[in-house]
């Protein structure tokens, strides 16, 4: 062994201390992030949440009854939330993509001004528009009043469905700026010559969108769909103000009230409800995860 090389023992010791420290920090961070979730999960599975320390697993107290009760209580809220989130997410992504295409790849006068308005829209705080929006749907465009004959006469369509429709439109409107911006960054990188080639090939603006832009936007759609789904599903503010509780209540609004009259015993039920409510957003991540990574990378 030459004198320049470090002896194996020395190397091992050096690496070992470093590694131990590294893994200790990593392990600590994992515990830091996962402990609250683990505690919540354990609490939700205990018949009496105070029978042992919150983070310890249930032994004799194990029960899934809280999940059954939470599911019963949230069931209708789930239906309403899906009724809201799926159309609102798809619509805002689709319209954001179209708006971004029109503002990026199509050349017309005044587009910079319109784009500036879109960007400004991103920074409007929800709290600031809460009252105007509820007034808007309450007295200026009262959809539920206008469509009274429809929900009175059509079986299966209820009055609160029009509140959900108002909420869909509201979420699409407020999600549109950020969706447009996300798509725009993606469209700026598209090859201009490709679009020009399509124009020379005889395709109209609409056809270029349909046959080139839309099929190429897949990864960005994954990003925007996940983002919007999570935003809209988790929203409480608009849901509470525009629809509130009752038949049309969203799952987040129902969750907020779940177990409130049960004092301390309600904690386990709340936890179970929270896990159920979070499940769809988790599934969306898993479902679109691969395209999401691709979209982030571009």
């Amino acid at each position: 062994m030459s004198t320049e090389t470090v002896t194996p023992e020395e190397t091992d010791v050096g690496v070992d201390t470093e590694r131990v420290a590294l893994y200790a920090v990593l392990g600590g961070l994992v515990a830091f992030y996962l402990l609250p979730i683990e505690t919540g999960l354990m609490t939700s599975l205990k018949a009496d949440p105070f029978s042992s320390a919150p983070f310890l697993p249930p032994v004799e107290q194990f029960t899934t009854a809280k999940y059954a009760r939470a599911f019963d209580a949230l069931g209708h809220g789930f239906v309403n939330s899906f009724l809201l989130t799926i159309p609102a997410t798809v619509l805002s992504a689709l319209m954001g993509s179209m708006a971004a295409y029109g503002l990026t790849n199509v050349d017309w006068k005044g587009q910079v001004g319109i784009l500036a308005l879109f960007i400004a829209g991103i920074f409007i705080p929800y709290q600031a528009v809460l009252i105007p929006v509820s007034k808007f749907w309450g007295s200026i465009v009262p959809l539920e009043t206008w469509f009274e004959p429809v929900w009175l006469l059509t079986p299966g369509i209820e009055q609160y469905h029009f509140n959900v429709l108002e909420l869909i439109i509201t979420h699409v409107a407020y999600g549109l700026p950020i969706c447009t911006l996300l798509f725009r960054t993606f469209y700026l990188d598209l090859n201009d010559e490709m679009i020009e080639a399509a124009r020379l090939d005889g395709a109209s603006i609409a056809r270029i969108y349909r046959r080139l832009i839309l099929p190429l936007s897949g990864p960005m759609f994954a990003v925007v769909l996940i983002y919007q789904f999570t935003q809209i599903w988790n929203d409480v503010l608009f849901a509470l103000v525009l629809v509130g509780s009752g038949d049309g209540a969203m799952v987040t609004v129902v969750l907020a009230q779940l177990g409130n009259n049960l004092s301390s015993v309600g904690i386990g039920l709340k936890m179970a409800g929270a896990f159920l409510t979070a499940l769809p957003t988790l599934l969306v991540y898993i479902f679109f995860g691969e395209q999401f990574a691709e979209g982030i990378a571009t």
């Binding site: 090859n191 020009e196 399509a198 020379l200 090939d201 005889g202 046959r211 099929p215």
Partner: peptide, 27 residues
């Protein structure tokens, strides 16, 4: 008029056949 671009400007999500057919389909 048909144009050939420096970057070739092929439609990346289409096969060669679809690339070549695109202009005829549209025009």
């Amino acid at each position: 008029i048909a144009m050939v671009f420096q970057s070739y400007a092929l439609y990346p999500h289409m096969t060669v056949r679809e690339n070549m057919a695109f202009g005829l389909e549209e025009s």
